[in-house]
């Protein structure tokens, strides 16, 4: 899963019939600290996200594993709206004791 910020909607009338009723969102990928990366995704909305929300995107074959996107030609889905991220900037290798 990756973090992304919803930056807009994608509207389409002529599409595969399995995509009917799905809202498409334009999302910009961000890293764990919220810094925007230069990657954009079009994702199906499974949680009623809106513009400006920080969301979690699932991609690849896993994107078809929601009730909404079952059997649909989808490779990215918004599966959670992020409320908060806690990042412990702890040292992965313990700091050496100073003598």
């Amino acid at each position: 899963m990756i973090f992304a910020k919803v930056i807009g909607n994608v509207v389409s009338t002529q599409k595969d019939e399995n995509l009917n009723g799905m809202k498409l969102l334009l999302c910009k990928e961000v890293d764990c600290k919220g810094k925007p990366l230069n990657t954009y995704h079009v994702a199906v909305d499974a949680v009623q996200a809106g513009e400006g929300d920080l969301v979690l995107l699932s991609y690849g074959s896993s994107a078809r594993m929601t009730d909404l996107t079952k059997n649909a030609p989808v490779d990215a889905v918004v599966m959670a709206i992020v409320d908060d991220i806690m990042l412990t900037e702890s040292r992965l290798v313990p700091k050496k004791k100073q003598s």
């Binding site: 979690l56 929601t66 959670a80 991220i85 806690m86």
Partner: peptide
């Protein structure tokens, strides 16, 4: 991997209810 953070999300797809998300 090492758990370095936690993600809170109230609204998520129903399969992920009662499932923690970690960084």
């Amino acid at each position: 991997g090492k758990v370095i953070g936690r993600v809170w999300a109230d609204r998520k797809v129903k399969q992920l209810h009662s499932c923690r998300l970690h960084i």
